[in-house]
Amino acid sequence: MHAFNLQPKTLSLAERLADLAVDALIDEADLSPKPALVDRRGNGAHTDLHLGLMHASALSLWPAFKAMADAAIEFGEIGMPLREAVGRIGREGEQAMLDTTGGVNTHRGAIWALGLLVTAAALDPESTAASSVSIRAARLALLDDRYAPRPLSHGAQVAQRYGARGAREEAQLGFPAVLQRALPQLKCSRAAGHGEQNARLDALLAIMTNLADTCVLYRAGEQGLHTMQLGAQAVLDAGGSASLAGRRRLHELDQQLIALNASPGGAADLLAACLFIDRIESGDGLIQGVF
């Protein structure tokens, strides 16, 4: 067949949602300059991560996200059968990620957050308002997967130690860091004409101002958490990422967090969730299923 005769492929709903989830992960990884996180400049506070690995990890998760969406379409309602199917697929996706990265945990938290949101979106693709999708995701997160392994992750251990809200609780509450902070800041910065990359950086900072990031707590304790929260607020108070004063504060925060070995991975996962919700809320070809 001649190349010029090829027709654009029509994507299924599950394929489109998987594309949007992977796109969100790649966009989060590429966003620069993020404080102490892997981005286009370098590895941030990490010694075992780099941008290429983040991209490979994100791409490895496409089949899992598609399978979660397919499961939502198959079961058609929130309940234990869907919850346990999504849990199983998530664990399989995590293993695919670890196989790809040589055992490095690049996106475990993102599998949880985006997996729930992909599933929630697939359950009702005509109801894509941020609040509606997050409520469906929360209802699913509140169900206890009896097949889930019980050993506590580093994040869960830290959440217990410091009384912080971990990734599980954030989802069960309907992603307040995304709906109450990241999305409003993203839209505010866009409306102010700050440009898309600066708006996304501001959304990340808005999450960081209040989140008890268990990745930071695990790596740098309460000192690291306070440095992150106060520093992120200082950037926004100085005018945000689009201002010269804000950029100076952002550079200072980056250096402070790197010195503390504190990388806000939890905030990064929630930024990816924010970008995903923003895309489906805007329509972005979700119901039509085509590019």
Rank of each mutant, 00 (worst) to 15 (best):
L6H: 03
Q7D: 14
T10I: 07
S12I: 10
E15S: 14
D27K: 06
E28G: 05
A29Q: 05
K34N: 14
R40S: 12
R41H: 08
D48W: 05
L49I: 03
S57D: 09
P63H: 10
A64T: 12
K66S: 11
A71C: 04
A72N: 02
E74Y: 11
F75H: 14
G79W: 09
G93W: 13
G93Y: 14
Q95E: 15
G109P: 01
L123D: 03
L123M: 04
E126N: 09
S134R: 03
I135V: 00
R150M: 08
P151A: 14
A159Y: 11
R161Y: 05
G166Y: 02
R168K: 12
E169Y: 09
E169C: 02
A171T: 03
F175E: 15
P176V: 05
A177L: 12
L183N: 03
L183T: 02
L186H: 04
K187E: 15
S189G: 12
A192R: 15
A192N: 15
H194Q: 15
H194P: 02
G195N: 12
Q197F: 07
Q197T: 11
Q197G: 02
M208Q: 03
D213T: 03
L217G: 01
Y218G: 02
T227W: 06
Q229L: 13
Q229M: 14
L230D: 08
Q233H: 13
L236P: 01
G239V: 08
Q255W: 05
Q256L: 12
A262Q: 07
D278H: 14
D278M: 07
R279P: 00
G283N: 09
D284E: 12
L286E: 05
Q288R: 07
F291R: 00
